[in-house]
Nucleic acid binder design. Structure first.
Lengths: 349, 349
DNA sequence: TGTTAGCACTCGGTAGAATCGAGTGCTAAC
DNA sequence: GTTAGCACTCGATTCTACCGAGTGCTAACA
């Protein structure tokens, strides 16, 4: 469904002066949201040339696709390619110490289940950056099943509750057209346990195909559980600060489109996934292949536990977003989040 | 936190002609979003008077607070009070047959856990009406506990999984500073079961205060479970079509404010709750007491199971929303939703 | 007494003209 | 290769005129 994210080609290096000019244009445009003129670039500290020189360089940068002109006699605006160059040549940045304290504070005190932590993290990220944040929790496809329990809600309705080694808990209803006795439920529960314990959803178990009621209950329960796996794999998405969308974009129509995308959680997951897999941490404008997000940039940072990808955090803003700060924030939070879960594990051993 | 919703006073009846005029103004303004002039009202079929007469009536309606004038020489616009009168005197409406089929279709085929049904219902409602929808699932405060299970994730981390009679499943982590042996976990699980089975979160159970490790594990687990109850009571909120907010309101700032409210799920729950308790099914403009929602109207309809309130559905739109259609849709869906769950129960007996 | 036609008046919205100025591209000199 | 100088472009702003939808008032009418 989601188109593959264009691999950001390592853009051919520009000569030093062009690079400085491009950087100045991008920086200022991010700041002011206005087209940037040659004279304000020329007044840049790192540059000792006249506006006229800057202009001729800008003509070149425009010809090469890094800059664009909204109309004659306006300043220049970065293109996606321009932003891409800027991001690729961005020095490392760290977040301000106040924010660093905020994050440390947060992770020192955050409590509760994984879901709660992820949700609150998304709020944190969005408040730190003023952008909409996305936090994706990994699915439990490869976690092993620690416990499964069949609880009878009534004679025709059983609930299969499964606990995974990563702490995830799922429930699945099993309806039967026939009434099931408590002893049948107990027997089915015993068999289900025997089948599932220690397995993961990735590796389906073979269910014996006897035709008595208990066996068919077992079959129904297990297949309901397995039915979930391939589609969603239990990924969880938490979106924080969706109201920031209205701040970041001026056109109401753009806001609508972006919100419409955010509503589709599956799509958000695959979007983040695609960007992660592209190896880059930023997808700018049309790079991610969704037309309605053409004026957006998406920053992602993986969350890992023991080197395994366990989710991701992301930030969605306009292409003219504050990449340096946002990247730093996303990276800091994703690291801390990774450490947080590892820390929980270590408290264990 | 949430201010009490103003009880919609049964507005003193207007005489027939004023009522017709008010209705015409409201209807047309909902349609066109423009101030309504005397002549277009006069051309209304039910009215056989001249624009001049309409004008003098409008002056009266304005004096009484039902209408307002954006500026001299503009037409009239309904005030919140005007909308209130309109809504209070709205004849019953049914949704179109196409939509009726859509709803029937939906409930005939929807499957999955309660949460999934509620989430999909919110999408349905929003697509039917083009407004943002809210679906609130009741908490499990008064459901009894059918099963509780303590699963060991590792020696210091146990997971208490609780199944309620309404089919809800919760999990709560219990961390211990000391390592717990499998046999201790089993013993604690046994004791917890003995304590909790058949109880509800409303009625706290007394936990014996022995000081061995098993007892303290039991204590921790039970208190963690109970800690949840008073605040959230496990209500679940599903919001559908949040992108509709961008369509319904023109000012970007309004959009931002509304989205910011929708982000706070607890607030949405209490908002819906308040309106339900006020006995009305619509809260218009300032009636619900949230300043940032001053230009919004909220329609709610309760979902009941066996006469018990089990949740609610809601629609959030601009004050000039299509009340008749939206009310009909909300009522239809809430009825069907109620029936859906009862139907599930009946399949049982 | 309620209704209506007639009319002067108000005022937001639109269109056009004038102007401003930021910024450009080009050229010629350095 | 760089830069000062300069004519030129074109969006944004301001101003004006004007239109017209809609009003409120008044006087005549049923």
């Amino acid at each position: 469904m989601a188109r593959r994210v264009a691999k950001p080609r390592a853009s051919a290096d520009l000569d030093a002066r062009k690079a400085t000019i491009l950087e100045a244009v991008v920086t200022e445009h991010i700041d002011t949201a206005q087209p940037v003129g040659s004279s304000s670039v020329a007044s840049n500290a790192d540059l000792t040339v006249s506006p006229a020189t800057v202009r001729s360089e800008m003509v070149a940068l425009e010809r090469e696709g890094y800059l664009a002109q909204p109309h004659t006699s306006a300043g220049r605006v970065p293109t996606d390619k321009g932003y891409r160059y800027f991001v690729d040549h961005l020095g490392d940045a760290t977040v301000g110490s106040a924010q660093q304290r905020q994050v440390a504070e947060f992770f020192a005190h955050v409590r509760g289940e994984v879901e709660d932590v992820l949700e609150q993290t998304s709020t944190l990220l969005s408040e730190m950056t003023s952008y909409t944040s996305v936090v994706v929790g990994a699915g439990h496809g490869h976690a092993t099943i620690l416990s499964s329990q069949l609880v009878s809600l009534d004679a025709n309705h059983q609930l299969l509750v499964t606990v995974f080694s990563d702490g995830a808990v799922t429930k699945h209803s099993v309806f039967t057209p026939y009434a099931v006795t408590p002893s049948d439920v107990a027997e089915a529960a015993r068999q289900i346990n025997a089948l599932l314990l220690g397995t993961s959803l990735e590796h389906r178990v073979q269910v014996p195909s006897r035709s008595d009621q208990v066996a068919s209950l077992v079959r129904d329960a297990v297949s309901t559980l397995h039915a979930e796996a391939p589609t969603v794999e239990g990924e969880q998405v938490f979106i924080g600060g969706s109201s920031r969308v209205a701040e970041a974009f001026n056109g109401v129509e753009t806001v609508r489109k972006v919100l419409a995308i955010l509503e589709q959680e599956l799509l958000v997951v695959s979007l983040v996934q695609d960007v992660l897999e592209s190896g880059s941490s930023v997808a700018i404008g049309s790079e991610h292949g969704y037309e309605s997000l053409a004026s957006c940039a998406l920053i992602v940072a993986p969350v890992t536990i023991d080197g395994q990808r366990a989710g991701a955090v992301g930030l969605l803003g306009p292409t003219r977003m504050k990449y340096r700060e946002a990247l730093a924030a996303a990276q800091l939070v994703s690291e801390q989040l990774s450490r947080h879960f590892v820390g929980e594990d270590e408290r264990v051993q």
